[in-house]
Design a protein around this nucleic acid. Structure first.
Lengths: 221, 221
DNA sequence: ACAAATTCGAGAGCAGTGCTCTTGACAAGC
DNA sequence: GCTTGTCAAGAGCACTGCTCTCGAATTTGT
């Protein structure tokens, strides 16, 4: 992230950004599957081979977009996490997830859909990916959610990673937040991927109902 | 489905099946993204253009695989729906979903991951796709789950489709089953797509915990 | 039973893809 | 100034989905 001292560095960062922007534009209209290095290069008025100076492969470009998407979603949710009561904050955060997903369907599909190639999420992505669950944990902490009975094995798993998490909540609360987290994204994915078509679609009412039930089950009043 | 009267019809059905089998094989090892018409043809010892006599496009082949996958999953869940109590049946059905998904990751990704192309779920798929939620509804019906308070708008949506569903349950129970349904697949997707890596992975304990909480919330005793 | 109609596999070919390698021009550092 | 590293460009490889045409085989109509 060091500012480009030389003209060359400056141009390089600038072009890297432009490539990602153009790629994101094509992603938004055509989906990740259709994203073509050659098409991006064409739109930028350069030749495809030149792109390889900036991204070693198509997958690396996609990985860069994945990280950006995680960060954009994370930022949107962090900003929507406000309100006078934990319940309001919960609703705000959950709604932000859905709204960001609806506004950036292909980017959402890129990060929460099927892992595209031979996949394997690079470790770089987890720091960004974890921002949403951390917001949810923060709300549970503010709500003072207490511990609850969970299987010993599960308690062991969650205790083992507690140190790596910047929010401290009882392990039982942790488990319930993780539960709600998977439910939240399950719902959004179902809506976006058309699985709800013919039942709870449009899903506004269903989503609102579900968010309240989730808060209830986590123990947020 | 009419049995092949002539030798040609017989050969046609046979070859159609062989193509799907080989495609499924490649799907299982390389993923939907990598599935190549030409590679399938090559494995079958024929030329790629000949394949187009059986499937008009790559997408149509994928659609056929999608329907088969929905049916395979539906059949597995239907068969696992047994036990003396509704709670046992519930656990059996949910576990079957996860186990089928783990055993057929790429097929699962094909149907519950991001819609591959410009998408559009053909109407043919819904009859097969709906088998799992119908099993869940059946268990709720057998458990005698009663009605509960849900938003009027949601009640209207669910009432409107009640006739198309071969199981009758109170609308409040219907809503809670749909909720659990999205949660179930949200969890399985998270596990399969690597979102749980670093937290509840391996997810056996988490899954068991979640299934019990879901049964609880649906009202299955 | 024979001719007409249909169906089939094969091959060539088009437009597109990701990616590699080489070439010649430009800027950065000594 | 001269060397060194970086860059865009171009040609090219192996691959993709898909179309079209062509004989051969088979089914169908008479």
């Amino acid at each position: 992230m060091s500012a480009g001292r030389t003209a060359r560095d400056k141009a390089r960062h600038e072009l890297t950004r432009e490539i990602k922007d153009e790629a994101r534009r094509q992603l938004a209209t055509d989906g990740a599957h259709q994203l073509s290095l050659r098409a991006v290069a064409r739109s930028l008025g350069m030749v495809s081979s030149a792109l390889y100076r900036y991204f070693p492969s198509r997958e690396d470009l996609l990985t860069a977009l994945i990280i950006d998407a995680y960060d954009a979603l994370g930022a949107a949710v962090e900003q929507a996490d406000r309100g006078d009561t934990p319940a309001e904050r919960w609703r705000g955060a959950c709604t932000a997830v859905r709204e960001w997903a609806l506004a950036h369907r292909h980017e959402y599909a890129l990060i929460y859909g099927s892992p595209i190639p031979g996949y394997k999420a690079p470790q770089d992505t987890v720091a960004s990916a974890v921002r949403v669950p951390i917001v949810l944990l923060g709300i549970a902490a503010a709500a003072g959610v207490g511990d609850s009975e969970i299987p010993a094995e599960l308690r062991g798993q969650f205790d083992a990673i507690a140190d790596a998490v910047p929010v401290t909540v009882p392990t039982g609360a942790f488990a319930r937040v993780v539960l709600a987290w998977t439910q939240l994204f399950g719902m959004v994915s179902f809506e976006l991927f058309g699985q709800l078509a013919g039942s709870a679609d449009p899903a506004d009412a269903f989503f609102g109902f579900a968010v309240d039930r989730m808060a209830e089950q986590v123990g947020i009043v």
